[in-house]
Amino acid sequence: MLRAEFEATHGTAPNHTELANEANRRGLFTTRDRPWTASTVGRTLRRLEDAP
């Protein structure tokens, strides 16, 4: 959802850093209640792609 909103607004697909910055700007936290980083975004997206 965040990725699609970013792409619709900016016209390009966001990279991991841009997604992390936007999630942090919106006050979203990781499951461990920490701010998002490019690394945590990448790991989360990989897990979601591998999920059944």
Score class of each variant (00 low, 15 high):
2 L>H: 09
26 R>D: 15
46 R>A: 05
51 A>T: 00
27 G>H: 07
18 E>N: 04
17 T>Y: 07
37 T>L: 06
4 A>M: 13
16 H>F: 08
50 D>P: 00
31 T>D: 08
23 A>G: 05
33 D>M: 06
41 V>D: 12
16 H>V: 06
42 G>R: 10
25 R>M: 12
13 A>P: 14
47 R>H: 00
6 F>M: 14
11 G>T: 07
24 N>T: 01
32 R>A: 10
43 R>G: 01
34 R>A: 04
36 W>M: 03
13 A>Q: 14
13 A>S: 15
41 V>F: 12
33 D>L: 02
14 P>D: 12
25 R>K: 13
26 R>E: 15
7 E>P: 10
6 F>D: 04
23 A>T: 04
31 T>E: 04
8 A>M: 08
5 E>F: 08
46 R>W: 00
9 T>F: 04
18 E>R: 01
21 N>W: 00
25 R>W: 09
12 T>W: 15
34 R>C: 03
17 T>C: 07
21 N>M: 10
42 G>Q: 08
15 N>P: 11
31 T>H: 05
52 P>T: 10
26 R>I: 10
32 R>Q: 10
4 A>K: 12
35 P>R: 03
10 H>D: 12
10 H>M: 15
6 F>G: 08
25 R>E: 14
52 P>K: 10
7 E>I: 14
5 E>Q: 11
44 T>W: 00
22 E>W: 13
38 A>W: 05
38 A>E: 05
20 A>E: 06
33 D>Y: 06
5 E>G: 11
2 L>M: 13
44 T>A: 13
26 R>S: 10
8 A>N: 09
19 L>M: 14
51 A>E: 01
9 T>Q: 10
24 N>A: 07
27 G>E: 03
34 R>G: 01
25 R>H: 09
44 T>S: 09
37 T>N: 03
41 V>T: 01
31 T>G: 07
18 E>G: 05
44 T>L: 12
18 E>K: 02
38 A>Q: 06
29 F>E: 02
30 T>L: 08
18 E>W: 05
28 L>W: 15
44 T>M: 11
13 A>M: 15
15 N>K: 09
28 L>K: 00
50 D>C: 00
52 P>E: 11
47 R>E: 06
1 M>N: 11
39 S>I: 14
17 T>K: 09
44 T>G: 06
1 M>C: 06
13 A>W: 15
20 A>G: 07
7 E>T: 15
26 R>K: 06
40 T>M: 01
2 L>I: 15
29 F>D: 00
48 L>V: 01
50 D>F: 13
35 P>W: 06
2 L>F: 05
15 N>H: 08
7 E>F: 11
3 R>M: 14
50 D>I: 00
14 P>F: 02
8 A>W: 03
3 R>N: 11
48 L>M: 06
23 A>E: 03
28 L>H: 07
12 T>K: 14
10 H>Q: 12
48 L>D: 07
37 T>S: 09
52 P>N: 10
10 H>Y: 09
34 R>L: 07
36 W>L: 06
4 A>F: 12
21 N>G: 10
34 R>Y: 01
27 G>K: 13
48 L>C: 04
43 R>F: 13
18 E>Y: 04
22 E>H: 08
48 L>A: 06
29 F>G: 00
5 E>S: 12
34 R>N: 08
49 E>N: 04
31 T>Y: 02
10 H>K: 10
51 A>M: 07
